[in-house]
Design a protein around this nucleic acid. Structure first.
Lengths: 242, 242
DNA sequence: CATTGACATTTTGTCGATAAAGTTAAAAAC
DNA sequence: GTTTTTAACTTTATCGACAAAATGTCAATG
């Protein structure tokens, strides 16, 4: 009687659980991923696991070395800098297109996504703390909504890809994070600029916004600082959800 | 003794042969890829095949529908337009970086790659016709060399990805193609502009160059092809290697 | 004391079999 | 004559077993 939901394939389950554990840090950067070990951990056979790992490695969460197995991808300042840079490029390009093509539904989607963040902030002030995944989902929806009217399938899928890659770092940031109110506010302002359809201002606002994760996780920009060496945060301003 | 070369894994063999057959058109767009059939065709077991197909589907050559199998990705004008647009964006960004960081080795690599194309053109005029794969390899090397000094690993790997996706269309183009001489010439000019390190001119030259594939395969863009940067193709020498 | 080489152990890569969908075809019902 | 049901048939997803490769151990050698 193992009634386990809408009948996904074991590969999909494995992908989901593995990436959750990698993003959350339960499987730490650099860690060797032994098939035998994962088999016990998730109670999933070797074949689905291999395929899941292959997929995760093409998504950048895992690195694969032929005949030498899989390991969790490393994190580093240089890596987040690379992600940030590429995200700025991709998302700005997509945003241009979205602004050019956006119709009423697009507007509505953005307003709704922003409202959802506000709502979570309100609930947080009352005594019904939203879970981390709630916040993360709403945040993702917001950034998806911003670009939803872009007519390039590839730009959109690249956006998702790198958004996910950044999630590992965002998770570090959110661990020590307080101020959902301010986050909602920041996103509201970004939404406003985008909805004004001023391409240049919108792109630079989005660009700065994307930079916030980097600045929050590696405040100094110095080499060799590791993510969870939580040196004293610069200012509360850096603690932004980006 | 089955002496079968430098000892790659069957997954790698399968990826190579499958993508060769897809790019060449031996496996046509939209065709269902039955595991059983592929097993006979390549004499490779189901597990390596599945993994190879998974990889190809994350590379965009194959589409996968959960529990419904794999099929060859469709081709269309809209698809090539999307590829072209994203390539322009990615490669221009990477080119900026390459120009900013390029050292002597970078210069040399470009000159060498360009020389290699000339060499093939010469051999073609004499009686030693270079094979399609020779030409393709040299062409790829050229485009790789242009961006080699870019310091973003992700931009470089995206360049490869979309270069490969465009290859299916390029193959169509090259089938009816004559004029390796002129192709070498065009690439030489592109190399010159890049080596002059004038970022703006280099980016628009590269952008136009990338457009050539689209213009050659779909000469009269039915749907609005928005020239993102460039003006118009030179003459009606559309049959260019791009 | 570092290096090499043989041997044991671990881990990956591959196969064949089977269970669980999905698909097609034919029969039954309206 | 269409729609629904049922049954036969494909095709995919998963497992367990095994072979091939990599890694680790440790004694012998220089």
């Amino acid at each position: 009687m193992n009634e386990q939901g809408p009948d996904r394939t074991l590969i999909e389950v494995a992908i989901e659980r593995l990436s959750a554990d990698i993003v959350s840090g339960a499987l730490q950067p650099g860690r060797k991923l032994l098939i035998a070990e994962l088999k016990k951990r998730y109670e999933i056979g070797a074949s689905p696991l291999r395929e899941a790992l292959a997929k995760l490695s093409s998504d950048g969460f895992v690195v694969f070395d032929s005949r030498r197995g899989f390991r969790v991808a490393e994190v580093s300042q240089a890596d987040l800098e690379d992600i940030t840079r590429v995200r700025k490029s991709i998302e700005c390009e997509a945003l241009k297109s979205a602004i050019a093509n956006g119709d009423d539904e697009w507007d509505v989607g953005i307003v709704a996504a922003s409202a959802r963040l506000h709502r979570l902030a309100v609930r947080a002030r009352e005594a019904d703390p939203p879970t981390g995944t709630d916040v993360e989902r709403a945040h993702r929806q917001f950034h998806t909504a911003l670009l939803a009217a872009c007519d390039s399938p590839r730009l959109l899928s690249l956006q998702q890809l790198f958004y996910d890659q950044a999630q590992r770092y965002r998770a570090v940031m959110m661990r020590q994070w307080h101020g959902l109110d301010e986050a909602a506010e920041v996103h509201q302002q970004l939404a406003d600029v985008v909805l004004s359809r001023d391409v240049d201002r919108a792109c630079s606002a989005l660009s700065e916004h994307i930079d916030l994760t980097l600045q929050s996780v590696y405040p100094e920009g110095a080499d060799g600082v590791r993510p969870h060496t939580n040196a004293e945060p610069k200012s509360r301003r850096n603690r932004q959800l980006a």
